[in-house]
Amino acid sequence: MAQAATVQEQHGHIADTNTGISNRKLLMWVFLASDCLFFGSFIATYLVYRNESIVGPYPNEVLDIPITSVSTFVLLMSSLAMVLALNYAQKDQLGLTRFWILAVAVLGAIFLGFQVFEFATFVNEGLTIRSNLFGTTFFILTGFHGLHVLIGVLWLLGTAFAHFKGALTSRSVEDLEMAGLYWHFVDIVWIIIFTVIYLIGFSDGEGLETIEHAATIIGG
């Protein structure tokens, strides 16, 4: 208890609530837990309709692993930049805090650039949201993830702007922590998407069972 009290005095992180956690932070975690359901449903839908497309383009024709690996690396490093920004904010090092917040926003924007490039390439190769089940489930899943990244970039730019306008206070450190939690969540969702859709699902081609079923319908 004495140690806990000392720590409390040193850090001052204990919120004056029943849980000892600030209500905003608890609410953010509840939101992130609910967002798990949001993306979990989309990923499950993708897998349910995996190998069910009867017309191309199929995943093994359009997915580009080297480019997506680079964009995944960029997003991972943006998470590192985010935690460094919060770390420096907790130490009241304002200059480094601003630098790393902007670094996160820039890395997030680069990731979005990769995604726009990928989407444009897919459309040029004939894969749209209406082409087949792969296109529908893929664009919905990765599109909503991209929307989350866009919101995160705008949020961080707003936070950086606010920090340029005024001094960093204990309140704004918590603001930055909220933005950080959201950003890391976007990162972990991409970790799952990259593995499941890109690395595991890369070899997906024509669904043979579906083709046989379609042939049965056409034939008879």
């Binding site: 849980t19 000892g20 956690i21 932070k25 608890l26 975690w29 509840v30 992130l32 837990a33 609910s34 967002d35 798990c36 359901l37 993306f39 979990g40 449903s41 998470s79 590192l80 985010m82 935690v83 950080g180 939690l181 890391h184 969540f185 990162d187 972990i188 970790i191």
Partner: peptide, 26 residues
């Protein structure tokens, strides 16, 4: 990422419980 970057390892266990519940339901 969840344990270190999101500080769940160092934070109050209630937050781990909340997030794990959402993840398990997903």
């Amino acid at each position: 990422v969840v344990a270190f970057f999101m500080h769940l390892r160092f934070d109050k266990s209630l937050l781990t419980l909340v997030f794990t519940a959402g993840f398990l339901i997903a």
